[in-house]
Measured scan of single mutants.
Amino acid sequence: PQEEYKKRAKKALKKGDEDTAREALKRAGLSPDQAEEFIRRFL
């Protein structure tokens, strides 16, 4: 589910792994723009 992928993305970002985070967010159904926004907000 979407929440699970978002959790995964946050874990990846904590490790500084933005590529894995983007992949997880893409799987969560976010557009690339939404994924970038999510990452920017998190960092």
Score class of each variant (00 low, 15 high):
40 R>N: 07
1 P>Y: 14
8 R>I: 15
41 R>D: 09
3 E>L: 08
4 E>L: 09
42 F>G: 03
8 R>Q: 15
34 Q>Y: 05
7 K>I: 10
10 K>V: 15
32 P>A: 12
24 A>L: 15
34 Q>S: 06
31 S>Y: 04
37 E>G: 05
5 Y>W: 15
24 A>E: 15
7 K>L: 09
34 Q>P: 01
10 K>R: 14
18 E>P: 11
1 P>R: 14
36 E>N: 09
11 K>Q: 15
21 A>L: 02
34 Q>E: 14
5 Y>A: 11
40 R>V: 07
37 E>W: 06
35 A>P: 00
34 Q>M: 08
3 E>Q: 08
6 K>S: 05
9 A>M: 02
12 A>Q: 03
16 G>M: 04
28 A>D: 01
33 D>M: 11
6 K>M: 15
18 E>N: 08
5 Y>L: 12
7 K>M: 10
38 F>I: 04
39 I>H: 01
35 A>C: 10
3 E>S: 08
15 K>E: 15
25 L>P: 00
26 K>M: 12
4 E>C: 12
7 K>F: 06
12 A>I: 03
31 S>G: 06
35 A>Q: 09
39 I>F: 03
41 R>M: 11
14 K>N: 09
32 P>F: 10
36 E>M: 06
29 G>M: 03
2 Q>I: 13
29 G>Y: 02
12 A>E: 03
22 R>E: 01
42 F>Y: 12
6 K>R: 10
25 L>R: 00
1 P>S: 14
14 K>R: 14
19 D>I: 13
43 L>I: 09
40 R>A: 09
31 S>W: 04
26 K>Q: 10
43 L>S: 08
30 L>W: 07
16 G>A: 04
30 L>A: 03
23 E>A: 10
24 A>Y: 15
16 G>N: 05
28 A>N: 02
15 K>D: 15
38 F>D: 00
15 K>Y: 12
9 A>R: 02
8 R>F: 12
2 Q>P: 09
40 R>Q: 10
36 E>L: 06
1 P>M: 15
17 D>M: 06
23 E>F: 04
22 R>S: 03
7 K>T: 10
35 A>L: 09
1 P>L: 15
6 K>V: 15
30 L>M: 12
